[in-house]
Every structure is written in C-alpha cells, then in structure tokens.
Design a protein around this nucleic acid. Structure first.
Lengths: 216, 216, 216, 216
DNA sequence: GATGAATGAGGATTCATTCAT
DNA sequence: GATGAATGAATCCTCATTCAT
C-alpha cells in the first residue's frame, strides 16, 4: 500500500505518460489518485508542475545512481560501458512510464527547477561521454565520431521507455543482455565472450504505477 | 514566400516543437502565422488538431516515399538498409522540427485520423522489419533479436530529430554516412568498403519552418 | 445608450461601490453588464483590476480638471478655495459611486498603475495645499496647522461620496454652497457676502451608473 | 503579552486595515497570529466574519463610552461638542487601525450582526446630532444645515483614521486640540478662549496591533 | 487547544470555437 | 478572406470550512 503522496505520483505518471503533462488536468490527477483536486495542493503546494518535478527528480537520481555504480565497479571502459547500458536499460524497463515522462516532458519543467534537473541529466549523460572517450583513447572502442555515437547510443537506450511493456516477450535481463551487445557493436567492440557483468539491481521507483494489465 | 496555408503549418510546427501540441493555443498559432485566431478556421475547419494532422501526414508521406525509393533501388538487403537509414536521416535532418512533432505528438492525433496515420507509420516501419528479416535470412546480417534490433535502430534514427540543429558541426551527408555505418554495426555487418550509395534527395517540407538563427 | 465598454464600467462601479472590489467576482461583473464573464476580457484584457484602473483614471482626471479650472479662474486664494471645494463637491455629488470607489479602493490598485494614479491624486491634493498656504500667507485665511486643515478639509469633502444620494433633500448647487461655507469656516474666513462663484460644471462620468431608484 | 484571542484580533485588524476584509484569507490571519488557520475556529467559531464583528464591537463600544462620558460631563452643548470631538479624535488616534477597519468594512458585516452594530453606530452619531441641535437651538452654534454639518463633522473626524500615524508630527493631545477648534469653526462658534476641557482618556483597545515601526 | 488532512464551492483567467460583418 | 465580438466550458488554483486526531 503506497503512501498517499506516492499514490499521487503514480497516478500522475500514468496520466502524464498517456496524455502528456499539458493535456492532463489536475482534476484528472486528483480523481485518478482518489482525491479531490484541491487536496493535491496539500502534497504539492506549487501545483501540477511540482508533481512533475518530483517524478523527474526521482528518476534522474536513480539513473545517476545506476551510472555511478557502473563506473565504480571497474576501471575498464569496456566494462563501464556495459555497466552503463545495463543499468540504463534495467532502470528504464523497471520504470518505463516514469522514464518515459522524464524523457518526454523536459519542456514542461518549471523554470525554477530547470537548471537543477538539466544539471542532473547532463551529469548523467557525461558519464557516457567520458567512458566512450576513454575507451576510444585506449583503443578498446573504434568510434568515428564520439559525440554522434554517444547521442545515438543514448537515444537507442532511452527508446526502451517508448516501447517496453512488462508483458513483452523478453525479460528485463534478456533485454539488458541484448542491449549491451548492441551497444558493444555501436562502439566497434569485436564480439568476444565477456564474462557476466555484475548487474546493477534497479529500484522500482515509488513513482512507477502498478499498471493494471487488461489483456484482450 | 510561402502560401498562407504553409505559413500556418510552419508556425504550428515551430510552436508544437517548442511547447507541445496541448500547450499551444490557437491564438498563439494565429498570431505566429500573422493571423487572427479565427482565420485559422478558414484553412483548417476542424481546428487545431487538423493542423497537426496536416503536418504529420506530410512528414509520414515523405518518409514513406524515401523508404519506397530505397527499397526499389536495389534488391540487396545490405543496400536497402543503407538506403532506408540514409533517407530517414536525410529527411529528419532536413526537417527536424516537423519530424520531431510527428514523432512526439502521436497521442494528440484526433481519433478519426489515428488509424490512417498509424497505418502510414506502421507501413513505413515494416520496411525496416522486412529488410532486417531478409538480410538476416540470407546471412548478410547477424542479428540476435530481429524485433529488438529494429526498435533500437528506429529509435536511434528518430533521435536525430531530438538533437539535430542545422548549425551543428556535421553536414547532413556526413550525418547520413555516420548513421549508415552505425546501422551497419547494429546489424552485425562486417565493415567493408561499400561503394557510395545513391542518396535519396530529401524534400524540404512545406511544414518545416525557416528557423531564424540568432548567433551569440 | 452607453457604449458596451461603458456599460461594463458602470456595472463595475455599482458593484464595487456596494460590495467592494475584492468581494466582487468577475462573473458578477459580467452578468451585471449583460455579458459572459469571458467577454470582459475583450474590453479589459488585464482583467478585473484593469476595470478598476479605468474607473479611477476617469474620476481622478475629472477631479484634476475641476481643480485646474478653479485655480485658473482667479488668483485670489479665497476664490480659488471656493472653486476647489465647489468643483470637488459638484463632481463627487454628480458621480457619487465613481468617487466612492476611487476613494475607497486605493489598496486594490494593481502595482503597475499605482504610481501613476497616486501621482494624479497627489497632484490634485497639492492644489488644496498650495491654495491654503498662499491664502494663509497673504492673511486671508487663519489656519493654525496647514497640513491638518488640508487633511480635514479633504476628508470632509470626500465624505460627500459616502452619504450623498441623488434623492436627498438638497440639490447639488445647494450642497456646493453649504460646503463652500463650511470650508470658509474651517480656514477662518470671516463670513462675508461673497459674490456668486463661477460654478465648475461637472461632467457626468461615463463610469457613473444610472441608479435605478426604488423608493419604498 | 496579549491573550491568544487578542493576538488574533490584532493580527486581523492589521490585515483588514492593509488589505481589506474580503482580500484577507483565514490562512493569512492564522499565520499572522501564529496559528494554523483551523485554530481560529476555536476562538471564532463562526469564522472570519465573527472576527470582524468582535473588532467592530470593541471599537464602537469604546466610541459610545467616550461619547456618553462627554455628554455627562456638562450640560452645555458647547462643552459637549468639544468633548465629543476630543473623545472621537483621541480614540481614533489611539486605535487608528481598529477605527479604520470599523469605518471601512461596514459592508462586510454579516447580516445577523448588522442591526446591532448599525444600531450602535447610529446611537453614537445621534449624540452628535442632538448636541448640534441643542446648541443651535440655544444660539451657541450658528448652523445653516444641521444634517449636513453633522455629516461633514463626522467625516472630518473619522478621517483621522485614514491618515494618522503614531510617528507623525503632532501628539494626540495636540490633535485633539486642533480638531476641537476646527469643529468649533464648523458650527460657527466665535473663537473664545475656552478653558481646558476634561479630556476623555481613551482606551488602547485590545484589538489595536502594536505596529512595528521601521524607520528608513 | 491545536493541527494536518481533506473537500466542495468558487476565485480569476484562458480555451477552442462560432458567427455576423 | 479575414476579423472583432462573444461565449460555454474548461483551465489552474484558492477559498472558508470541517473533523479526526
């Protein structure tokens, strides 16, 4: 049984993911969370946008945490990249709606929080940049354009949030495995049987709604 | 000098790309196009959503056309894949705002047009699916999971719309070149000096705004 | 038949005078003027407070005009004071509701207009100050405390707006006459048969509602 | 240290005087008094309007008391009028914010209390009326219009609440003195050296906030 | 005594849309 | 073709108030 605050965040993630932030009204949010719309202001005095900020903060911090863990586990850029990708995919697939909202609603961030949140995101993405750079420098990777490859890699990984559903054919570990291989290919790593990586165990975020699945 | 209709579409693309469809009001659209908001109903009787539909239709049809051209140029899945990626990147980079709106505002499509537009998009994406499948079957590609690879590839390519700016470091042909190589890697093609591809020459869509660049 | 704009201003004055600015809703204003509340934004884009500003501007400018006329008519401070009081009373009694709102709702003036409106009011009140000072200096008036007397005089005159009703016992010219005598007493003028003053003919402001009188 | 009840009344007077009754919220009142808004209902079960009623009752009763004292001190209308004005000015200047609220928020009185409070006010004002009438009848005053003079006199005296600040140039006794003279002039009393009046010693009301003075 | 939680009603304002001109 | 005027519905948010704790 989630906190009332979390019930609100989950309801918000669900609605934001389905309809977008702007198209979601607070009455909508309120009733989805089992509240009167006025009650939301008890939990998020600054209103709808504060709810978005809470959601994004939670997600970006988890990504950041996953990234840091991956970097600390090994000094080898090959292992680091695998770690970054595995963690990203794991977190995204564990919290697809939260990740989707975080990725898509950047333009709805209130001005006062923009710097902090963009700072978090940039710090996270720079982990990818530095790993690619180092791996390229030491000859592990063969990359023609560092920036472009990083962008392509990140888009590919973020994409998971767009299409992943927990009822899909593949389990999250399988997904992680396939994506680490795709990432390896992108950076020009010759296929070699790498040992099993130490998986980052993603957190199921409090913001991620428990989707009721209605199969047809 | 663009048609009045096109002036409206361009203004709409700009606003939709910046603020999102829901967050953009018709008054906003009108004044951006140099019109009174009421005048828009002359060009789009069904209102705001009709404008979105026009934009998406234009973009999806251009992608479709680019895809068909690529498939017809050669029967070799290797060449076909290169063609699909080149065309996609070329179209997206030539019309980044239109492509971005088309990609991001799927949830704002009015119900009556959803089937047609989703049909267009699915038809386009199935070109990628069938090329990957054939290339995999004939041994040109080495793909562990066809579906997943297609999704990853498409997200990577769509991503161009998210970060591309015409003032960037790379020219569009360079971008096409780099992306075709990344795509080749994704599908497990060993690097081999392929001859120059027959470039699909993308259309600058009437919906794509002429961004005024303000250098600082 | 008043302009639509004026119909709105009149309705607003009536409501503001009865209930106060803050206690008056915009729906209330709209329906009192025969409009949907949204329509008010066509005439006062900045909302309720813009309506208040229009009202006050009209009233303060009329007072200013009346004051200037009085000062120009004669150089004698005795005549000038009589003129100021006559004009003030005439304007106030001709537009009692407008004057009342102008006097009582100073705290509801939006910050952006505060300086301008307070400037108008101060300029007007300083006419009284300078007349009192000059009359005192040349020995026409016998005033123990200039500032205090000015304040007392102004409050006395402004008070007309608080209790005056057109159905009262006294006509406006009688009122003017009585008040000029009271003012003369306040400033210590010995009663002497002054000739008839040149009356300032007050403007019936467009903001002043045509009160429907229901006698009981 | 004031009672909690009085802390609430003082906070309310301050806010009502600054912003007006309607524009002041209970949350505002609560936090200004150091309480949660819900706590106010412990002291004023009927809500915001009950607080206003408490304030006004306190003020009107003090005025009434001051008036009665003035009437009882002498039978001479000249002395009575001096007493009424002195007491009024003294009470108003001692409690300017309370008096201001009492004067300005008549329209916010809840219907159930309107009769009682208006009765109090009318009873108080009729003291002025009867003194003027008697003094006029016995030939002490020379008044052209009794009603009008009473209204003018009362407005002049009430006005003190509008502009008086304790940091002003004049002390309260000086103010009383100047106003009794102004009143004497209004009613046509020839200036004659009256002996010192027996001052009514005004009560500092529990509702009057201790204004924190910030000199600049 | 005091308050956090909750709410229905209403606050001002903006919305997309229509239509006479 | 184009627009000013008008509106009903919806927007976000704040209101005064209640009540269990």
């Amino acid at each position: 049984m989630p906190t009332k605050r979390n019930r609100i965040l989950q309801a918000a993630v669900l609605r934001f993911a389905e309809q977008g932030f702007s198209a979601t009204g607070i009455r909508d949010l309120g009733s989805a969370a089992g509240f009167n719309s006025a009650s939301l202001y008890h939990y998020a005095p600054a209103g709808k946008s504060e709810i978005l900020v809470m959601i994004m903060t939670e997600c970006l911090e988890e990504l950041h945490k996953g990234g840091r863990a991956s970097l600390q586990r090994s000094a080898d850029p090959v292992e680091q990249l695998r770690g970054l990708v595995q963690a990203h995919v794991a977190i995204t697939a564990t919290n697809p709606l939260t990740a989707s909202v975080t990725d898509q609603e950047v333009r709805s961030i209130p001005p006062g929080d923009l710097d902090r949140l963009m700072g978090l995101r940039d710090a996270y993405e720079s982990m990818f940049a530095s790993v690619l750079e180092k791996g390229s420098r030491v000859g592990s990777f063969h990359i023609r354009d560092l920036t472009l490859t990083r962008l392509a890699l990140l888009e590919m990984c973020n994409g998971v949030a767009h299409w992943y559903t927990p009822t899909g054919r593949l389990s999250i570990p399988e997904l992680e495995d396939l994506f680490t291989e795709l990432a390896a290919r992108l950076v020009g790593l010759e296929p070699s049987g790498h040992g099993p990586i130490a998986r980052y165990q993603p957190t199921r975020l409090a913001t991620e709604p428990d989707v009721v699945l209605i199969d047809t």
